[in-house]
């Protein structure tokens, strides 16, 4: 939902006419101001330490970046970098495994028949259900990374398989009449036409990956992480700081989706598929 709304926002902002741009920017501003106002009004009507005002959260947010938090001993910068490192490692591993496997499963019937049942058994298990197991087996560093790996793995895998199978049969005919053998078909036709599907898989995987890292860190994480931070802040009753952690997660999530959207646009432009 977040990425959808943001995509529409970006579309609004990318309109050519200057007047239109001003108008959409104004609407965005009004929408954000309205959100903060409603939040502020609700927190004044229902005063509660569990539901701090935007001002208090803002103060906590600034403070969390400036001063190390006494409970975890580090600043938000360090929590963020811990979470990002875990996230990127999990994502990279998932990508490195899912891409070749997806290509094989899409291309070779036998690879698919062999792997499909195994994949189908594992797919319905929520990545977080693995967390306790991974903490024991993979340790405190790799433990929280594994759920991310699983969360990213399946969307990338199924989209790559689908991409390979969705290759236009006309393209295959064209390549064959041009003298292509099977390996050439794979390299020069199937692989490039699967790339847009791969991008979709990545975009979905990024969203799931963020949910997994925060949740995994909330269960167990050592040495920091935004998920850990949120969980600790709730345990010690610093609700404004807990909300500040959630704001950081939202910002990081939007940032990754934006980066992947940018990469996707660059790749499709480079490939001539707009």
């Amino acid at each position: 939902m977040k990425s959808n709304a943001f995509g529409r926002l970006r579309k609004l902002l990318s309109r050519d006419s200057e007047r239109g741009l001003m108008k959409s920017a104004a609407i965005v501003l009004v929408s954000l101001v309205a959100f903060v106002l409603v939040w502020w009004a609700l927190s004044s009507i229902f005063p509660s330490e569990y539901f701090p005002s935007p001002y208090k959260v803002g103060v906590a947010l600034v403070d969390s970046f400036q001063n190390p938090d006494p409970n975890t001993g580090v600043t938000m910068w360090q929590h963020m970098s811990k979470s990002l490192v875990r996230f990127l490692l999990g994502f990279a591993l998932a990508f490195v495994i899912a891409l070749p496997l997806g290509l094989l499963m899409g291309f070779f019937k036998i690879a698919e028949n062999f792997s499909r049942p195994i994949v189908e058994v594992f797919r319905p298990i929520p990545p977080m259900a693995w967390a306790p197991f991974f903490f024991i087996v993979a340790g405190v560093f790799w433990g929280p990374i594994m759920p991310v790996l699983l969360g990213v793995f399946f969307p990338v895998l199924s989209n790559v398989i689908f991409g390979v199978k969705s290759v236009d049969p006309l393209f295959l005919d064209v390549a064959k009449t041009q003298g292509a053998d099977r390996l050439t078909l794979f390299k020069k036709v199937i692989l490039p036409s699967a790339i847009p599907y791969l991008m979709t898989g990545i975009r979905i995987g990024l969203g799931i990956g963020w949910m997994c890292i925060v949740a995994a860190e909330m269960i167990v994480a050592f040495g920091g992480g935004v998920g850990l931070y949120i969980s600790v802040m709730s345990q010690v009753g610093k609700w404004d700081y807990m909300f500040a952690g959630m704001v950081v997660i939202a910002a990081l999530g939007i940032l990754t989706v934006e980066v992947s959207g940018y990469v996707e646009r660059r790749v499709s432009k480079w490939m001539g598929m707009k």
């Binding site: 236009d168 006309l170 393209f171 005919d173 003298g179 020069k188 036709v189 490039p192 790339i195 490939m271």
Partner: peptide
């Protein structure tokens, strides 16, 4: 095989290749 050149009704140009790279496809192979 490339000893017969085929032209398709729906063109079948590779969208990720430029005009030149489309024409050079068989030569590349």
């Amino acid at each position: 095989g490339s000893d017969r050149g085929m032209v398709f009704q729906e063109f079948g140009l590779f969208p990720w290749r430029t005009v030149r790279k489309n024409i050079e496809f068989g030569l590349e192979i």
